[in-house]
Simulated assay, not measured.
Amino acid sequence: MYDIFIAPFMEYVFMRRALLACMAISFSCGPIGVLLVLRRMSLLGDALSHAILPGIAVGYLITGLWLPGLSLGGIAAGLLVAAASGLVTRRTILHEDASFTGFYLIALALGILILSVKGGNMNLTHFLFGSVLAVDHPTMIYIVGVTTFSLITLAVIYRPLVYECFDPTFVKLLGSKEGKFHAIFMILVVINLVGACQALGTLMALGIMMLPAITARLISTQVWSTALRAVIIAASCSYLGLILSFQFNWPSGPTIILLCGLVYLSVLSLTALKSHSHS
Rank of each mutant, 00 (worst) to 15 (best):
M1N: 11
A7R: 14
A7S: 14
M10Y: 13
M10K: 15
M10S: 15
E11I: 15
Y12R: 13
F14L: 11
L20E: 09
I25L: 14
C29Q: 15
C29L: 15
L35K: 03
V37P: 05
L38A: 10
R39L: 09
S42V: 15
L43M: 15
L44S: 14
A47M: 09
L48F: 08
L48G: 10
A51D: 05
I52K: 09
G55L: 08
A57V: 10
V58W: 03
V58H: 01
Y60F: 15
I62V: 15
W66S: 14
L67H: 09
L67A: 08
L72K: 03
L72W: 06
I75Q: 02
A76D: 05
A77T: 05
G78W: 05
G78S: 06
G78N: 04
V81H: 01
A82W: 04
S85E: 04
V88I: 15
T89N: 12
T92V: 01
I93D: 11
E96Y: 05
E96K: 09
S99G: 02
T101K: 05
F103Y: 10
F103E: 07
L108E: 03
L108V: 08
A109N: 05
L110S: 12
I112E: 02
L115N: 04
K118Y: 15
K118C: 13
G119T: 08
G120N: 09
G120T: 07
M122L: 14
N123C: 06
H126R: 14
F127R: 07
S131W: 01
V132W: 00
A134E: 03
D136C: 07
T139K: 13
T139Q: 15
I143Y: 03
T147W: 01
T148G: 14
S150V: 01
I152P: 03
A155R: 08
I157D: 02
V162D: 03
E164V: 00
C165N: 04
C165Y: 09
D167G: 02
F170S: 11
F170L: 13
V171E: 04
G175R: 11
K177Y: 14
K177G: 10
G179H: 06
M186H: 10
V189Y: 01
L193N: 07
G195P: 06
Q198H: 13
T202M: 02
L203R: 04
M209V: 13
M210A: 13
A213I: 12
I214P: 03
A216R: 06
S220Q: 11
Q222H: 13
S225A: 13
R229V: 12
V231M: 12
G241T: 05
Q247V: 09
F248L: 12
N249Y: 10
P254K: 05
L258G: 06
L265E: 02
T271M: 04
K274V: 01
S277T: 08
H278A: 15
